[in-house]
Amino acid sequence: MSTWELEARQISKQFPDGTCALQDIDWRVQKGETMALIGESGSGKTTLLRLLNRLVEPSSGTILIQDRPAKTQDPITLRRRLGYVPQDGDLFPHWTIRHNVCLVPQLLGWTTDQQRDRLNTLLTLVNLDPAQVADRYPIELSGGQRQRVAVARALAADPAIVLLDEPFSALDPLTRHELQEQFLSLKTQLHKTMVLITHDISEAFRLGDRITVLKDGRIHQIGTSQALIDTPATPYVASLVQHHLGLERK
């Protein structure tokens, strides 16, 4: 048993239209670690995330989830084991908060009592009042509240791994800051392995234990924020770091 929870070996992905999304990616995430994936749109960060839950299949190379090749795992079962927080929340608009949060437990066949308990725990965990929101529809909630529900939904079946696709980017700065704070406290409470996509270097520095910098389908650097600041591997990484430091100084 290695300590790697997620692993990409020699991954390349070319889409049918010829665009090369990823090239020769070797990438690993430790158990309990939060890995931030940063890059511009088209850098391949979303493709890498979607390879993990088999929404996309690699052209070549191997993905390992908890040391088992993803290819050998049933995609439906696999996805139910990986929490997922989409951009914008993307809650099911025609379902109540209760239904949204309990989706994966439902799919896994939990009893109603188990689901109710879990719902209360989760909503409380993300700072929502279960009595107030459980039976409301997503449209009746604010953007920040909806995003908290999306986090609760991802954690519902207590997955060891959670994938977050720009979870906070659509929120206003104040709410975003608040949710980032909460994310950090959740992180220390729950010890999940997390992969978080962002295009905001400050967010990556704040939330990530380590950071992967992607550009044009290639990895420029993997390291802690300190490593990126001290020894940027490429000019691109350096410019990203400069930008972050510039913001810090203001």
Binding site: L78, Y84, L107
Partner: peptide
């Protein structure tokens, strides 16, 4: 029908 919501359903393991 709401493509991003459909995609989310898929990512969460709905058939």
């Amino acid at each position: 029908a709401a493509p991003s919501v459909v995609e989310t359903g898929r990512a969460l393991g709905m058939t």
